[in-house]
């Protein structure tokens, strides 16, 4: 058998070097060890933790998830063990897996984000931070910072002051002009952007005449949102110079290619992890296959080659 030509899948996000461009999206890969036997953190270029807050959060009232046409709604509500338990109980097990770890954080106030960023900055095993300013399922914090360019910039600037490693900001599609937010966050010192988080959505139980979700509304993810994600990525790519990480409904390597070609340096896999825990591995082999067929030796050559 002819030996397959090796494709260089390595990418770099403002100095953060990843062995491949497929990243596990926050909240869909837990603390990195839940899928043992099905998928490993090392399958991914990096693993983004479930959102961490200073204090533990119980999360929202159930039901928390609901399937919709080619997608799903969730209203988990940032349920997490809190920073101390993350650091002491969850992190050591994830570190053993030898994957690149990106911590995703959220807070109710700028001060809380800053305090968390300082703590994460001290952890040598975590080379990057993703700021969640786009969770649609909590009242305070989260999306409150993500829908207004000046609030997003103020938060990014405050965190930038204390956080010395790679700083990624995760943007919301629930805005009228994502380019304005992207520019504001870039100017405030972000090293990279992740886009998009989930879209506001809801579903109704016609028998009970009640919302399906305990929280009434939730965030829509899955293949249903992919066109929205690509549109937002396209707009952001033409507005900022920092690297972009694309996400929203990526299920297979063809979806991932659409994001790379539109301008993403790397992609995140979220809902697909639930459906197919081997999605990351399947996507990576599909990406390498596409590169071979098209005589592309480095995956980075694909970024932003969209012809318009």
């Amino acid at each position: 058998m002819k030996k397959l030509k090796k494709i260089d899948l390595r990418v770099s996000l403002a100095g953060l070097k990843l062995k491949n461009p497929v990243i596990a999206a926050s909240g869909t890969f837990g603390y990195g060890t839940e899928y043992t036997g099905l998928a490993e953190p090392g399958d991914f270029g990096a693993v983004i933790t479930k959102t961490i807050t200073l204090a533990p959060r119980p999360g929202n009232r159930p039901p928390r998830i609901c399937e919709t046409a080619s997608g799903m709604l969730n209203s988990i509500g940032l349920a997490n063990v809190g920073f101390e338990a993350f650091k002491n109980d969850k992190l050591p097990r994830l570190v053993e897996k030898k994957a690149v770890i990106i911590a995703n954080i959220a807070g109710n106030t700028i001060e809380e984000y800053v305090e968390l960023a300082k703590k994460i900055n001290k952890i040598s095993h975590i080379p990057a931070l993703e700021l969640n300013i786009s969770c649609p399922n909590v009242k305070q914090g989260g999306i409150a910072f993500g829908t207004d360019p000046s609030s997003a910039a103020a938060l990014t600037k405050a965190v930038r002051k204390v956080y010395k490693k790679t700083l990624i900001v995760k943007l919301s599609p629930n805005v009228s002009d994502i380019a304005a937010i992207a520019r504001a966050v870039e100017k405030a010192g972000a090293d990279a952007l992740s886009l998009i988080n989930t879209l506001y959505g809801m579903a109704v139980d016609i028998k009970k005449r009640r919302p399906v979700l305990g929280n009434i509304t939730g965030g829509l993810s899955g293949p249903a949102i992919k066109p929205v994600a690509l549109y937002n990525l396209y707009k952001a790519y033409h507005s900022v110079k920092i690297p972009l990480i694309g996400l929203g409904g990526i299920m297979d390597h063809r979806d991932a290619l659409e994001f790379l070609i539109t301008g993403a340096v790397a992609v995140q896999i979220g809902t697909a992890n639930f459906v197919n825990p081997s999605a990351a591995k399947d996507i990576l082999s599909g990406l390498a296959g596409y590169c071979r067929e098209n005589n592309i030796t480095k995956i980075t050559k694909l970024t932003g080659i969209l012809k318009c």
């Binding site: 869909t28 890969f29 837990g30 839940e34 479930k50 998830i65 988990i76 639930f274």
Partner: peptide, 11 residues
């Protein structure tokens, strides 16, 4: 959703 304790959707 996940079935393995990662997403906290089924609580």
């Amino acid at each position: 959703a996940c079935g393995v304790g990662a997403c906290q959707g089924c609580v």
